[in-house]
Amino acid sequence: MNKQINQKAWLFVLPVFILVAFNALIPLMTVVNYSVQETFGDNVFFWSGLLWFQEVLTSERFQNALIRQLIFTFSILAIEIPLGVAIALTMPRKGPWVPVCLVLMALPLLIPWNVVGAMWNIFALPDIGLLGYTLNALGFDYNFTSQPGDAWFTLILMDVWHWTSLVVLLAYAGLVSIPDAFYQAAKIDGAGSWAIFRHIQLPKMKRVLTIAVLLRFMDSFMIYTEVSVLTGGGPGNSTTLLSIDLVKIALGQFDLGPAAAMSLIYFLIILLLSWVFYTVMMRNEDQ
C-alpha cells in the first residue's frame, strides 16, 4: 500500500516551531551575538571578535570549573545509575505495595530545587543539622562550610538523594514492561538471578537507561540552584561548578561578552557529550 503524504500535518507542528524559536533559537542567537562584542550597558556594543573565546579557553578559572563539573557529573552518574537499577530491581511488581513504593520514589522529585538546597544546608550544618551533628558526634571532623571534601560529600549525597528516584522510576518502567514469558523461559533454562539480570532485564532496560543517563548527565552538567543554595560554590571555589561560575561572570561581574562565550563553549560540551552517550548506547542496542 502506498503511503499517503499529508503536508497539512506541518501546520500542527508550527506552534512548536514558533515556541522553540522564541524560547531557544532567538536567545541562542542573541548569546552568539553577545559573545563577539563588548557592552557597558545601554544597548551599546563594541566588536571584540574572538577575544572572549580565547580568554575563556585559556583561563585557569574556566578550566578548573570544567574539571570540577566533570568530576561531579561522572561521580553522580557512577552512583545514581547502578543504585537506581538496584532499587528498581528490589521493588515489587504486583500487589498493594506498588503504589506506595512509587509515591515514595516520586517524592524527592516533587520538591523544588531551591528547597532541596535549603533542606540539605540545614540538615548538614555541623552544630544543629541532624547529619552534621551526628557525624561529628560519631567522631568525624565534618564541616561542609569550611572543608572542601565535606562540601563535595554533601553535594554528591544531596544530588543522589534528589535524583536517584528518577533513575529508579525509569528503570522500573523498563522492568515492568518485560513480558512474563521471558522469565518463564529463563526458569525453564535454569537461569540464575544474575543471568536473568544480565541477559533479560538489562538489555530490556537499555532504552530507558539511555534516557536516564542522558537526562541525568544534562541535568547534572547544568546544575545550579541546589549547589548555589547549599554551598554557594564554596568553601573558596571548591564547589564552583560551570553554571555557578557562569552566573558569577554574567550577573556578578556583568561581563556579558565573556559570559556569552563561556555559555557557548558550555553548550558545545553538553552537545558533544550527549551525542557521544547517545551514539554509544544506541550502537550497543543495535548490536
Binding site: 532567538i26 542567537m29 542573541t30 552568539v32 551575538n33 553577545y34 563577539v36 562584542q37 557592552t39 544597548n43 556594543f45 566588536w47
Partner: peptide, 14 residues
Amino acid sequence: LTWMAWTWPTALFF
C-alpha cells in the same frame, strides 16, 4: 532587533 545586538559576521554565520 537592536536588543539582539546583530553583527554582520554573526548574521552570515546563521
